[in-house]
Write a protein that binds this DNA or RNA. Structure first.
Lengths: 150, 150
DNA sequence: GTGGATGCAAATAATTTGCAGCGCG
DNA sequence: CGCGCTGCAAATTATTTGCATCCAC
């Protein structure tokens, strides 16, 4: 799937959600949505601001913060706190996934594990709970072919 | 196991870890360790400071911050970011557990799930990683006996 | 004794907000 | 053509740090 299509889809989905919530589809929001749609990583607000400004230099940091808060409430993005410091975002909406954080490189890798999620639901039920959402972050290091433990 | 014993154990463990790292066992650190040992919940820095001051009013907020950073590095506590805002802490060292967060009450409940952890290790290995640590937070709501979905 | 630890206050970092003007619906 | 949205700057919140003093080793 070409980027343009993915982006277009993301924007229409955005349009629908904004309309539903009564919020307006403004130029800054379009730009930020596009930036999010094109992001393959998990950028923080500063980075989103940088990328948004590359498209429209008039966009302020405050607007990026406000927009991320709105998008999070609308379920358009997910906020993560992988480490201390700035929060990082990714466009949600697609199928759920969790994250590996490579401790050495700082890299964040997405992965799917339906088996784990099934177990979670089971454990939650055992405790009398229904799952609304979850966050699983696994801090890892790469296993080298010739690795002797550490 | 009575609280006094648990607390005493925690303090001796603390003493050992501080000695190993070359850090000093000062009065504020003793107090904060005791507060952590007696905590059944997951207090934030302000709350720890409040409790520490109840024992020794001279203890400053800065020292609580510095001590929590030290304790985290020594593996004495775990830092959590259950929600935005202040970080929350718990005394680590015991067997690992994860957390339910009751979205309605804000309550944090600990749970064990070795099955889930086994699966995590398997999934990580599948991706070429070795697990160093992990964080699983499940946001839940209580299932009422007569509950019709929402 | 002496270097690490503390308290205090001031400094940073991360995020939010008040307000006047602008533009989407 | 009004009310929500924006930019800017100032305000808040969370955490860190410089410095003089203090005390654990």
């Amino acid at each position: 799937m070409p980027e343009t299509v993915a982006t277009k889809t993301a924007v229409s989905k955005l349009e629908a959600k904004l309309k539903d919530s009564g919020a307006r589809l403004t130029a800054p929001r379009r730009v930020i949505a596009r930036v999010l749609g094109e992001a393959a990583d998990h950028p923080d607000v500063e980075e989103l601001h940088r990328r948004a400004q590359a498209i429209d230099p008039g966009i302020s940091l405050a607007t990026v913060y406000r927009t991320m808060r709105l998008f999070e409430q609308l379920g358009i993005v997910e906020r993560h706190a992988f480490s201390a410091g700035r929060a990082r975002y990714e466009h949600g909406g697609e199928e759920h996934h969790d994250h590996f954080v490579d401790v050495k490189s700082g890299e964040v890798i997405e992965f799917h594990a339906p088996e784990i999620e099934a177990l979670q639901a089971e454990v939650a039920a055992r405790h009398g709970y229904r799952i609304l959402d979850h966050r699983l972050v696994i801090y890892v290091e790469r296993i080298e072919p010739s690795d002797k433990k550490r």
